[in-house]
Structure formats: structure tokens, C-alpha cells
Design a protein around this nucleic acid. Structure first.
Length: 418
RNA sequence: GCGCGGGUGGCUGAGUGGUUUAAAGCGCACGCCUGGAAAGCGUGUUCCUUCACGGGAGCGAGGGUUCGAAUCCCUUCCCGCGCGCCA
């Protein structure tokens, strides 16, 4: 949510950002919001004056004035309905206007316009045809899609044996890397109530993506970012505490997983996966640097796994509502000969904090919204796909990346299990 | 699921219809004091609105009674404890 005070103080900044997003409708919303806010302020002053008169009457309580007091009460009630409407409408807009963009965000229509800002090691041409990760995993008896479909439907899978272990190895590897950098490990609740959930996510996404429970106000989380962001809801943090750096570990659940053609079968687009997530609460002036630091952490995973990758600066058409700036980290798929999105790294500035009411107390005693940042450290299934493709051998086995071997009891190569 | 007890500022916690303009304590910030610090003393520390003086709202949320509600009534959400059920 945008801060109404920012809009009042700097309408141009907000409007320029919407123009950059090429969102004409939201510009209209902004104008209407400002109008409603002005009306609200005027009406509020009138009502406050009525209240003042009423309070005076009640202080010098006198029976002869009861009629006037009642009259004023009626007027207040009448005007309050309108006041409430104005506030509702203003809030409606506020909740739906997107974050203001950082100046470095490129303009573009969609994913294809994201700008590559960095490349890892150069991909090598494979000397044999790369098998599809899902098919190979099934052949090696490391995954079972058919039985998962039988009990849970499409988009689910069993991971088996060494591949299941590899999933956990990835998580341990990511966790250990973050712990060395001073992150606190968090296992959050994986069910959340609706109200805090609305504080952390885009409202349209919510309906599309979330799994709901029946008869209870609980939703399966789409990422541990959400419970971690909401955990300090309506709290005031001390300046000394910041930055708070959290490493979330959880299963993630998503109802909508995009269209999947034949080639998408496997575990790239799935309803459930495991993820280690970086999350930071910080002071506004710390945001930029920490955002870069989170990106470096994500890149470190790719480097140590020795998977070719790119970092893209995500453009206006692909950046989403809550982000002021976003990087994607994309891993190389030798089978498709292109980079596929594995991680994203987002600076939400004060957008989430304003919705959630998370502030910190400054030295002079004033309060300000914190900034929040989030970034993938590793999303296991997507990364497993990359590993299976990049570490595939001609003989149809999968080598274990060096960085993961110690978490695999020293195993160097995964072969067919019986 | 049933029964009982609760939700008050950054925190603890008074307050059961009108000097509550939310006591008191703690914490935090600033100032005084000091050789420096601690202690002590003083000031500030919910939100909205106004250029300002000021004004208004606020005691989980939403309604109601009343000239007047943190306080009384209704609805609802949440928390704690006990019992039940269960991995």
C-alpha cells in the first residue's frame, strides 16, 4: 500500500511511476483518490466542528439544550455516512495502486523485455541430447508422477531416494550459506489467516493462487515470505534491531501454476515445492545495499552449483504490484537452450510495511515505516530441474554438484536405483 | 466442541456513566546536574486534522442506550485456562 502522506506530498512522483508502468486506469484512480482525500479532509473538519459544539453542550449540561444536542447528533450521523464512503473509496484505491518504481527499472511489456545485467559462466554445448528432467527422474526411479497424479492430481509428484535427498541437500546448503551471513533460521506456520495474508500479497493474486481450507479461516502459504512479512504486523521495532535478516524454510503451495504443455511435465511448474527464502526488515536508507546483498547471496548459490545463469533487471511489464525494483536470477536449461527463471529478488520499499503497519522508532522519537526485501535463496524443484539437465551424463546418470556432496553422504553420482 | 476468564499507549497496568485532558510504573529520547558516568531532577513519548492557535477521534472490531460511554446492552473476532477429542 502506498503511504497517503507520500501521495499528498509528492503526487508527481507517484504519477510519473504509474505512467512508466503505462497504466492509464490507475492514473485515473490516483486522481480520483486525491479528490476523495481532499473531500474527506474538508468533511472531516466540518464534522469535527459539530462534535466540538456537542462536547461543549455536554460539558455544561443543561436540560434546555437537549434538543440542540440531539439535532447535532443527527447531523453528525448523517455526514459520517458520507465520510465513511469517502474513506472506503480512498482506501480501495490505496490498496490497489502499485508501488512507486525505482528509476533504474526498465520499461517493457513482459518477461522478454527484462534487461540482462550480469552473466555467470558461459553455457557449454552438450555433446549428447539432454533428456527431459521429469522423464529421466522417472526412468532412474527417482520420481513418481503417475502415482502422485492418482492421489493428488496433476502438478504433484513423489520425489524418491537420492533425489529426495538432493532436495534436502539443496535446502541445507542454502541454509548454511545464509547462517554464515548472520541470517536467523525461521520455520513459519504454513497456514495463515486471511487478514494478515491480505497485508502481504497482491489482492488479485490471492484469489488465484491460494489454497483455502474448508470451514476455517486458514490458507496454505505460497511462500515463507508471507508469514515472515506478517510476523511483525502492527508492531513498532527499535532502530537498533534493524536490519532483521531471516532465512525462511517451508513448503510452498500454489493453486495456479500456469499452462503446462507436454514439455512442462515434471517438477518445474508444480503445486507444491520447498523453498529457502531470504527476508529482510530494514531502515529505508539500508534498502538499496541490502537488496544487492540478497542478490549476491542468490548468485552465490548458482555459482557454487556451477550452473550458468543470468541476472535480469525486471521491467515494468513483469515487475508486479508490490515491487519497487526486482531482479530475476535465471538458470541455464541446456535442453531448451535458454535461461529459465529460478529466483527473484525484490525490494518492496515501504509498500508491504505500510499495509502491515510495521514501523520503527527513530532516534528523535518519530516513527517511520520499515522497508522489506525478499529473495529466493533456493526453490528446490526448479533448481533440481536445472541440476538434472546440467549434470546429466551421456550414460543417463546425474552427477552431484560438488557443493552438495557433503550433504549427500559423499555421493558423487546418482544412478538408477532398484 | 463445551465451560470460565480476558483484550486499555512501545511494554506492564489502574480505571464499572461526567476534573480520564487514559492514573502509575517501566522503557526510550532530549535537557539539567557531573571531571566523566550512574543516580537524581525536568521535558517529551496513540492517531487524524490545521500554516498555526486549536480541534477531533481512540481502550480488539461493529452496532445500540444516553445530553454524555474505556465503563451499560447486543453482535462478532481474537487470546488464555480447564475439560473433551486427536496425532
Amino acid at each position: 500500500m502506498l503511504d497517503i502522506n507520500l501521495i499528498r506530498a509528492n503526487q508527481k512522483l507517484v504519477e510519473d511511476s504509474l505512467r512508466k508502468r503505462q497504466d492509464k486506469e490507475k492514473i485515473k484512480w490516483l486522481h480520483d483518490l486525491i479528490e476523495k482525500d481532499n473531500q474527506w479532509r474538508g468533511l472531516k473538519q466540518n464534522i469535527d466542528k459539530l462534535r466540538q459544539r456537542k462536547n461543549d453542550l455536554s460539558k455544561s449540561f443543561n436540560k434546555s439544550q437537549i434538543a440542540e444536542a440531539k439535532n447535532i447528533s443527527a447531523q453528525i450521523k448523517e455526514n459520517e455516512a458520507r465520510l465513511f464512503q469517502l474513506k472506503e473509496k480512498a482506501n480501495y484505491y490505496l490498496m490497489r495502486l502499485p508501488n512507486t518504481l525505482h528509476e533504474s527499472v526498465p520499461v517493457g511489456k513482459g518477461e522478454e523485455d527484462n534487461v540482462v545485467i550480469r552473466k555467470g559462466s558461459r553455457p557449454k554445448k552438450p555433446t549428447f541430447p539432454i533428456k527431459h528432467h521429469g522423464q529421466l527422474a522417472a526412468q532412474l526411479n527417482l520420481a513418481d508422477f503417475e502415482r502422485a497424479v492418482k492421489i493428488s492430481g496433476t502438478g504433484f509428484f513423489f520425489l524418491k531416494g537420492e533425489l529426495a535427498l538432493l532436495d534436502i541437500a539443496l535446502q541445507r546448503f542454502a541454509i548454511d550459506t545464509l547462517l554464515k551471513k548472520g541470517f536467523t533460521l525461521i520455520q513459519p506456520p504454513i497456514l495463515m489467516r486471511r487478514k494478515p495474508y491480505e497485508g502481504v500479497t497482491d489482492l488479485e493474486d490471492f484469489e488465484k493462487v491460494m489454497y483455502k481450507t474448508e470451514g476455517e479461516d486458514l490458507y496454505l502459504i505460497a511462500t515463507s515470505e508471507h508469514p515472515m512479512a506478517a510476523m511483525y504486523q502492527n508492531e513498532i521495532l527499535e532502530e537498533k534491531q534493524l536490519p532483521i535478516k531471516l532465512a525462511g524454510v517451508s513448503a510452498c503451495f500454489r493453486r495456479e501454476i500456469g499452462k503446462h504443455g507436454l514439455d512442462e511435465r515434471g517438477f518445474f511448474r508444480v503445486h507444491q515445492f520447498n523453498k529457502i527464502e531470504q527476508f529482510v526488515f530494514c531502515k529505508p536508507e539500508q534498502g538499496r545495499k541490502l537488496h544487492e546483498a540478497l542478490l549476491k547471496n542468490a548468485e552465490e548459490v548458482m555459482r557454487k552449483l556451477q550452473i550458468p545463469y543470468t541476472v535480469t533487471n525486471v521491467c515494468t511489464g513483469d515487475i508486479g504490484t508490490v515491487a519497487a525494483k526486482k531482479y530475476d536470477v535465471n538458470g541455464w536449461s541446456p535442453r531448451e537452450e535458454k535461461y529459465i527463471e529460478l529466483m527473484s529478488c525484490t525490494n518492496c520499499t515501504s509498500y508491504q510495511a505500510a499495509r502491515l503497519g510495521i514501523r520503527y522508532r527513530k532516534k528523535d522519537g518519530s516513527k517511520e515505516f520499515v522497508h522489506t526485501l525478499n529473495a529466493t535463496m533456493v526453490a528446490t524443484t526448479r533448481t533440481l530441474r536445472c541440476i538434472i539437465e546440467n549434470y546429466q551424463t551421456k550414460q543417463g546418470t546425474v552427477k552431484v554438484p560438488k557443493a552438495l556432496q557433503k550433504y549427500m553422504n559423499g555421493l558423487k553420482e546418482i544412478k538408477k536405483t532398484v
